[in-house]
Design a protein around this nucleic acid. Structure first.
Lengths: 334, 334
DNA sequence: GAGCGGGATTTTAGCGTTAAAGTAGAGAGT
DNA sequence: ACTCTCTACTTTAACGCTAAAATCCCGCTC
């Protein structure tokens, strides 16, 4: 390993002069600077980031900590990355599997040291657990959990999104809409909020809210969505609409409906949530609540930048607006 | 920040004793150990990972460096993570956008220091550029580029996969199969290899290889796949099969065919490559070349572990076998 | 009771960098 | 000629940790 000291010896200057050249901190005379640069080139010197970090207390790195890397989080990550890089920092992703232990570990003193700031998608931690986190490190929480006031937080308008999607299907003739994955679950505010929206759309339209149409699923996967909807179909419960908690789940519903010979949207209207890249391509085009990944990314990164720049004002709690993107899976679609 | 020195003072021992307790290195008498642990608890001490890294030369972290976070790489990452964690290390993801500059930077001396080992999905770098990388750091390359012998490398049987998929469609009656995204492109061995497989399937069956059926696409996205196939349809070129270079592109083809009123598989058979999670759910089920993400992940991580454990034997070049998963988008499907 | 073995603990010496304070020398002002 | 200032560079002192060597202490042997 080539150290600054090696470059300094080669160039006949002190280590600090090398540091000043490399970091462009204090001005260095051009001939000296050239000698140092020549030595850097000759020896192939590159700074030791760990040493710099220890000494300077800064990593120029931000972590985005997600439950899993695929689907929704993969897409959001790709939006976040350029925003972080635009400020000259690196973005790294870490994975928690959504477990409270992993999320807590990611917020531990030890791990927070590694980053100048952290974006965390909270799935497993509740308000009390988050309240135990004591740190001055810039943190922005994302996700649908309830969080202590002192954290910056960006979440989606879940209830409104679910209401929009459900109301849209009611407006176009559906009367028995399955809420696929829309369970009441204190551990999953997301599903609860989306269920409330589903219910509100019913009440707004003067329709009964029938609990049999709330169908729980084991995990937020397409497989679970398909299996759950196949069970509904097998049970004989009549339905003419499906609101799925996420597009990934909705894709499972698409499969279940196709397998069962039910036509979308003629027999059953279908809407999801997240508006993933794939959603516009799955025939007949999946109507979905658009969570505006890009806007969420900008908001979250903006809050993080502000904190990293030294802002100490009160934390913000942003509810990102949503809109319904209507496609062929509901009537009234393009 | 609480330092080891603070704990040492609180417990009335030397800093080294704290270190020995925390790391369970040298044995420490039980009463002393208990006092140290009590002090750790009382002060909320956690080790400074940066300082440990600088001193011990080890980060217990592995990086998986990918072109982008979504789709294929997101799914593979989720397979890799548990394998790395099983050995007591952390996995972080970094993104290159597929640009040679970013990939080269990820392999720079400075950045490699941050990790005990690196998995890199090569997309942009060619053999010559990789040859300029000089490092003893454990590295495993993934992807379809040509790489210097001294690197461990895991790639897919691209040609064989493409041949399998194409031959399967020929066997079930297709005679004019569009190779969607299967261009000859030195910068993209993946597309070239898959095109060769597409061609070989034709020759094996005694069919002409018609260059008009090789359709380039601008990016490997569903949108590009859909647009390119819509152009083909608009051009009037007759076809009865589509082999798409990736499932993401195939999804675009699904959309294009549906929009154009062409039935799958009755009018047009369709097959893709990668066998993503979504592929089995997109009606009528996407026939796809399965690249065995899990197996690839195990192989790559195995090679990395071997290197990190000190193995210095010759590098291995693994071609991961593929198999065709037949679904409803081709005839003969379930 | 001097010498020895061995476990428990401490001392020493950095890992490679950078913030801050220090020095040396040239030119300007009086 | 004596400060005074300014620029260019160097010295010093950490950042928080750990590998290795050194020391201490105690019981045990002969």
């Amino acid at each position: 390993m080539v150290r600054m000291a090696d470059v300094a010896r080669e160039a006949g200057v002190s280590v600090m002069t090398v540091s000043n050249v490399v970091n462009e901190r204090l001005p260095v005379n051009e001939p000296t600077r050239a000698r140092v640069m020549a030595a850097v080139e000759a020896l192939g010197y590159e700074v030791n980031l760990t040493a710099r970090h220890l000494r300077a207390g800064r990593t120029d790195t931000v972590a985005f900590i997600v439950p899993s890397f695929h689907d929704y989080f993969g897409e959001v990550s790709d939006k976040i990355a350029p925003l972080i890089e635009a400020e000259g920092r690196h973005l790294v992703l870490e994975r928690t599997s959504g477990s409270p232990e992993h999320e807590m570990a990611a917020l531990s003193v030890a791990r927070l040291q590694l980053y100048d700031g952290v974006l965390l998608s909270v799935v497993g931690l509740d308000r009390d657990q988050l309240d135990r986190v004591r740190t001055a490190k810039p943190i922005v929480l994302l996700g649908e959990r309830d969080v202590p006031d002192r954290f910056n937080h960006v979440r989606l308008a879940n209830e409104e999104g679910a209401r929009l999607a459900t109301a849209h299907m009611i407006e176009h003739g559906s009367r028995r809409i399955v809420g696929l994955g829309c369970t009441f679950d204190t551990a999953h505010m997301m599903t609860s909020d989306r269920r409330i929206g589903w219910e509100r759309a019913h009440r707004d339209a003067g329709l009964d809210v029938d609990a049999r149409y709330v169908v729980p699923i084991s995990t937020f996967t397409s497989a679970a969505g398909r299996d759950a909807l196949l069970d509904v179909i097998a049970s004989g419960l009549p339905f003419d609409g499906v609101f799925a908690v996420t597009d990934v789940v909705a894709l499972g519903a698409v499969a279940a409906l196709a397998e069962s010979g039910l036509r979308v949207p003629t027999d059953v209207q279908l809407a999801g949530f997240d508006n993933l890249d794939m959603s516009s391509f799955v025939p007949p085009g999946l109507t979905s609540v658009d969570a505006n990944h890009e806007g969420v990314a900008e908001t979250a990164v903006g809050l993080l930048h502000r904190q990293m720049a030294g802002w100490t004002g009160p934390a913000e709690h942003v509810v990102a607006p949503v809109r319904l993107v209507v496609r062929g899976s509901t009537r009234g679609g393009a």
